[in-house]
């Protein structure tokens, strides 16, 4: 399959079940809401090292938030519900509570409850105020700046983590440009985040290592500087590879983001130096979710920017 001169390889992305939740963080200004969002989702690129994967889902206009102030919607994913219950209050307490003017609200209604103020209300040392109205409880914590308002808890969803695709391009600059186009387009898809820096991973990994202590290591088959020295997946003209990793609240959300992202990369096309689209998998035996690139792209081919 070739779209606008870009080869879509006949492979699939292999993804795993994750448990996720959504937080709505608001602040007096869009800048402070974004600051809170960035800090709260910082150091959350991969569960392997960070305990969770998190990102800003989208920016919210004042009329779309519970308190009528500018806000951001954050998604946080962990491998199991127990870990999620641990990481969310930690991030809430260290990153949202501390950030000037913020308030934090539940962004998911259903599912198992993830504690928010239920845990961090004790920071107020007995001065915390609870209000339960219209079936929802929220807390007010007196702080030096004024008051921190926070919902009691939020719901959770069974999501999908580790959806991905690889952009194979002629040069580093061209690979990055194509990746940036994909990230920008995927930002419009609801229910997903791209947890890596700026949405892009430059150091995709394979499972295992020659060193016993490591269970993941550099994906040498896609390292351009190792072509010829190791069994390589890269044709001679590829000079750089970027990966985009997607976590989402459902299989459909991740599939849609994959489609939108690849479409944006293909719109850059061969003129922009893109050679092929590939995906990371472990042979299909580890993760229950398979995102077959060609199936996804043929389903949405009608709306593709440049179909060759």
């Amino acid at each position: 399959m070739i779209l606008n001169g870009v080869e879509i390889r006949d492979t699939f992305a292999e993804a795993f079940p994750m448990v996720g939740t959504r937080l709505i963080v608001t602040a007096d200004t869009p800048d402070w809401a974004l600051t809170a969002g960035r800090v709260t989702t910082g150091f959350a690129t991969s569960v392997i090292g960070c305990g969770c994967e998190a990102g800003i889902e989208r920016v919210l206009a004042p009329q779309d938030t519970p308190d009528g102030r500018p806000g951001v919607s954050l998604l946080i994913f962990a491998m199991d519900f127990g870990s999620l219950k641990k990481v969310v209050p930690l991030r809430l307490g260290q990153c949202v509570l501390t950030c000037p003017t913020t308030a934090c609200y539940a962004g998911v209604e259903g599912g198992k409850r993830v504690p928010l103020a239920k845990t961090i209300r004790y920071f107020a040392d007995g001065h915390q105020i609870s209000k339960k109205l219209a079936g929802k409880r929220f807390w007010r914590l007196p702080v030096m700046e004024g008051e921190f308002v926070c919902d009691e808890d939020t719901g959770s969803v069974e999501g999908v983590g580790g959806g991905n695709f690889l952009i194979l391009a002629r040069s580093r600059g061209q690979a990055l440009h194509a990746a940036e186009q994909a990230v920008a387009a995927m930002g419009q898809v609801p229910g997903i985040i791209l947890p890596f820096p700026g949405g892009v991973v430059r150091s995709g990994s394979k499972v295992g290592s020659k060193y016993k202590a490591l269970f993941a290591s550099t994906n040498d088959a896609y390292c351009p500087t190792l072509r010829g020295a190791v069994p390589s997946q890269l044709p001679p003209e590829v000079g750089s590879v970027m990966e985009i990793v997607i976590d989402g609240v459902s299989f459909e959300a991740v599939a849609e983001a994959t489609r939108v992202g690849i479409e944006a990369v293909c719109a850059v096309g061969t003129e922009g130096g893109v050679v092929a689209i590939d995906a990371g998998n472990y042979g299909g035996n580890l993760g229950p979710f398979h995102f077959k690139l060609r199936e996804i792209m043929s389903a949405g081919a009608g709306s593709a920017g440049g179909v060759a």
Binding site: D67, K131, E147, V149
Partner: peptide, 17 residues
Amino acid sequence: THDLVALRLLARRVPDL
């Protein structure tokens, strides 16, 4: 007198208020 975010939340979340 204080600026209370909780008032804005109540105004939107509780139709009666």
